[in-house]
């Protein structure tokens, strides 16, 4: 079994995943997305599957699109990664199947965005439609802040600033939850704790094991299924007595989650990749 592992750089996660695959007898080829060339009419036939770990979502999506056109299975699939790469696509996928998610609105001009923010009710959170690691998140507490921020965004220009994606701010208890879904199983979950309202580990949040109860399990599997299933990290917010799914991540980072949960996350991912290669039916969540 030969698996390509598509990477932009080698992080702890990529080393652990490679080692876990090798441990299961897989011949792993590290594929640097910066060096790869793909001639559409001449498929590369040396991989039974490709594990997509590109740090660049644009490259990852382009490459998985071509690989799938050649009949090479990818983890995650192109469509799942595309849905997760767009917060708007994720929100619509969650809404479509009734998975609770923060109230969300989109607008396309500063004036309309003000109206959308007022309809949601302050505070609201402005997010880039594509983006990760807590980058460019802004909590907007009132109309003055909204006007200033939306004007700046409009003046910056470019397609990434042309969509105003807004969510009602959830007053979470100093933490959020990240649940790791592999196929049809929620393998572990962590709390991400921070004094800052942004609780990404990339922004310094601390991690702690989160027990998986029936509600968390069901909600995570439903969210995973909503985007198409696979190897996914589901971010959830505690909104008083209920859970809301805020985001789904298709190229999850997990180095800070192994020790606190005691779960062999790379091993479980490697097993999933092997199942995909063998053509075994793999779960897609709830």
């Amino acid at each position: 079994m030969r698996v390509g592992m598509l990477c932009s750089r080698i992080r702890v996660e990529e080393k652990l995943l490679r080692d876990a695959l090798v441990h299961r007898g897989v011949d792993v080829e590290i594929v640097d997305d910066r060096e790869l060339t793909m001639t559409l009419a001449h498929p590369i036939r040396r991989w039974d599957a490709v594990l997509e770990r590109s740090i660049s979502q644009t490259r990852g999506l382009a490459i998985t699109r071509v690989l799938e056109s050649w009949g090479i299975p990818t983890v995650n699939t192109h469509d799942v990664a595309a849905t997760c790469a767009s917060k708007l696509d994720t929100s619509t996928a969650l809404e479509a199947v009734g998975v609770p998610t923060p109230d969300t609105a989109v607008a396309f001009t500063p004036e309309a965005a003000i109206q959308a923010a007022e309809d949601l009710g302050y505070p609201v959170v402005l997010k880039p439609v594509t983006g990760s690691w807590g980058r460019l998140l802004a909590r907007i507490n009132d109309r003055d802040s909204a006007e200033a921020l939306f004007e700046h965004k409009a003046l910056l220009g470019g397609p990434e600033h042309s969509v105003f994606y807004l969510q009602r701010h959830v007053d979470k208890p100093g933490r959020d939850i990240r649940a790791f879904v592999v196929g049809d199983d929620v393998i572990c979950a962590i709390y991400r704790e921070s004094d800052h309202w942004v609780t990404n580990t990339a922004r310094g949040a601390r991690t702690r094991d989160c027990p998986i109860d029936a509600t968390l399990r069901q909600m995570s599997l439903r969210a995973a299924a909503a985007v198409g299933g696979g190897v996914l990290a589901i971010d959830l917010l505690e909104d008083r007595d209920r859970l809301l799914v805020s985001e789904v991540n298709a190229t999850m980072e997990f180095k800070n989650s192994i020790d606190v949960t005691g779960v062999d996350i790379p091993g479980r991912v490697a097993e999933y990749v092997c199942e995909v290669v063998r053509g075994a039916p793999v779960g897609v969540g709830g």
């Binding site: 932009s8 750089r9 740090i55 660049s56 979502q57 644009t58 790469a85 880039p128 594509t130 983006g131 990760s132 690691w133 980058r135 990434e160 990290a233 991540n249 298709a250 190229t251 999850m252 980072e253």
Partner: peptide, 23 residues
């Protein structure tokens, strides 16, 4: 710094973070 060689060790400045980088 990105490691581009090991014997001997060689480095280049790592590319700056781009807007589409992430999970």
């Amino acid at each position: 710094l990105e490691v581009v060689g090991l014997d001997p060790p060689r480095f280049v400045l790592a590319p700056p973070e781009e807007v589409d980088w992430g999970e």
